[in-house]
């Protein structure tokens, strides 16, 4: 699956909350498939996208919304060598969330650091 050794910086931008729409789940599917291409992958979580990483999501219990809880998949990303997960500081603070409420370890970026990360990318996929 490797593309003649070309390694580009891929950034996945997640700005949408889970379950209300399919964007979060299908974007995760791209990340998982994309991992086979051995590119330099980063994921950022901005705005409501931060909610994708909230711990304790319960969806498939009998009283639940009847969808698959895919938040566990974020914990599997490490096994796919997708290890660079970044959360926008302001988005997290606005939502009253802290890092210990998230399903995976992440790096918190301030505005300037986030802008710098975006600027360094070759391919930015937003969903």
């Amino acid at each position: 699956m490797e593309e003649e050794g070309v390694v580009k910086k891929f950034l996945y931008v997640n700005r949408k909350a889970p379950y209300g729409s399919i964007y979060a789940l299908e974007s995760l599917e791209v990340v998982l498939i994309g991992a086979a291409f051995e590119q330099d992958v980063s994921m950022v979580f901005i705005d409501d996208g931060v909610y994708q990483l909230k711990k304790d999501q319960q969806t498939s219990v009998s009283s639940g919304i009847g969808m698959k809880d895919f938040s566990k998949t974020y914990r599997a990303l490490e096994g796919y060598d997708v290890e660079k997960l970044y959360v926008d500081k302001k988005s997290m603070e606005e939502r009253g969330l802290s890092v210990d409420e998230l399903v995976v370890p992440v790096t918190i970026l301030d505005d300037a650091q986030m802008g710098e990360l975006m600027e360094q990318q070759d391919v930015v996929l937003s969903f």
Binding site: E3, I33, Q39
Partner: peptide, 11 residues
């Protein structure tokens, strides 16, 4: 497959 999207990004 989705690989075609990644390939498009690479190429």
């Amino acid at each position: 497959g989705l690989g075609q999207l990644i390939e498009a990004g690479v190429q």
